[in-house]
Write a protein that binds this DNA or RNA. Structure first.
Lengths: 219, 219
DNA sequence: AATTATTTTTAGATTTACCTAAAAATAATT
DNA sequence: AATTATTTTTAGGTAAATCTAAAAATAATT
């Protein structure tokens, strides 16, 4: 009835790479899952027979309705557990990803529903990402990329573009986290770096790469 | 560095069958794990090379110091999660075992410590079993078997001898749970059945098998 | 369009945890 | 003590998920 952890991880990876629509290539998947293209091909054939995705040789994959449903259920669990870890157990928002990667594979549906109720049906996880409800629907947050924020508009950091430890380390060093208030003071077209000012602090510049990894909402 | 879920389940099963001291046979383990003797032999060889147990052909197994430490860590997680499910998420005490069987394999040490702190360092799980602390020490509860309770001594149900759904179903039907107050009215030597009376209820008889599966503490 | 480069698939192996069937060791019974 | 019964181990095989190396298909470039 259920699916293996490995199968679930493939479904989740395809879901993330698909982003809305489009098709996902074997190599993209191999990179995302830190495995080899040959292994991906094998698994895609298997998941096709299980009707979780549509796949034709050399043509890439896309999730079926069933596949999307499963992906949303996994994402729901991941984000609810992240919320729990930060909100209830007082973890730092930058140290919960790995643990949630394990917890998202716990199968009990009743557990998920009770956890959701206990947490008060949160709509966004600690990284600012929306939590799908029990029907797979999620709220749309008007996240905008920091690089697109106009100069002198106050905003609040609401999400990060990746969970990499390198990024989280850099953000910690710069004292930037979810909820941090900031505004842009100048944009430098030479290297697309931007000068930002955190609330009650001096201004400093950050790289284009960092700015692109941060999402903010206007206030 | 870590161990597979299967390996952990073997260690846990050996720990439970060992109960205090003694050696565990291949067939006992096979029965406990719903697998075959040949599979057990294979795994024992593997776990021996990992120094989790001492094992000589045809002589049975016993856990090493390392093995016991691991077993206690797993039991700790299992019971803390059970406590969490009942106390925090409002699960019934008779429906948490299966879920905890999955949760006990989540590896994060920090998660266990934070969960323990959040729950207020509970000493016993919802079935009345003691929860090992972070050093593997557990409180000793003076559980006595219901079959050994003297007639007319008021007592309180504090634990059950198994997690089988058959037992839990029967207890539910008879309205017996952890914390139920009762006393023995008569003992029948013919079939070792006993007549018990729950607080504020009429007396009824229960079988020897059921009495042996219940633990109580004197009040 | 032909060649070169890249991507993807196939073929054949490996590892983990399991199995069945037969052989070996231990335990029980006459 | 000898035989029978039981337990345990060995031997050889299967399924899941992975790998490397080679072949086939697609894409890019001259």
């Amino acid at each position: 009835m259920g699916f293996s952890i490995t199968e679930e991880n493939y479904i989740k990876a395809i879901f993330h790479l698909q982003q809305g629509e489009g098709t996902v290539s074997t190599n993209e998947l191999a990179a995302e899952l830190h495995t080899k293209a040959a292994s991906v091909t094998d698994m895609l054939k298997k998941l096709k027979t299980k009707k979780l995705l549509s796949y034709e040789k050399y043509k890439g994959v896309r999730l079926s309705g069933e596949g999307k449903k499963l992906a949303l259920a996994i994402v729901r669990k991941h984000r609810l557990w992240e919320y729990f870890l930060v909100d209830t157990l007082q973890f730092g928002w930058d140290e919960v990803h790995e643990v949630a990667e394990e917890l998202e594979h716990i199968s009990s549906k009743k557990l998920v529903e009770k956890l959701d109720a206990f947490l008060g049906y949160p709509k966004f996880d600690p990284h600012g990402d929306p939590i799908p409800d029990s029907h797979g629907k999620m709220a749309v947050q008007q996240h905008i990329n920091l690089i697109d924020l106009p100069v002198n508009k106050p905003a609040e950091v609401s999400g990060v573009g990746s969970q990499s430890t390198e990024l989280l380390e850099l953000l910690k060093h710069k004292h930037i986290g979810i909820g941090t208030r900031l505004e842009i003071k100048r944009k430098f077209s030479f290297d697309n770096s931007i000068e930002i000012k955190l609330k009650n602090q001096n201004a400093f510049t950050i790289s284009q790469q960092l700015a692109q990894a941060l999402f903010v909402k206007l206030m």
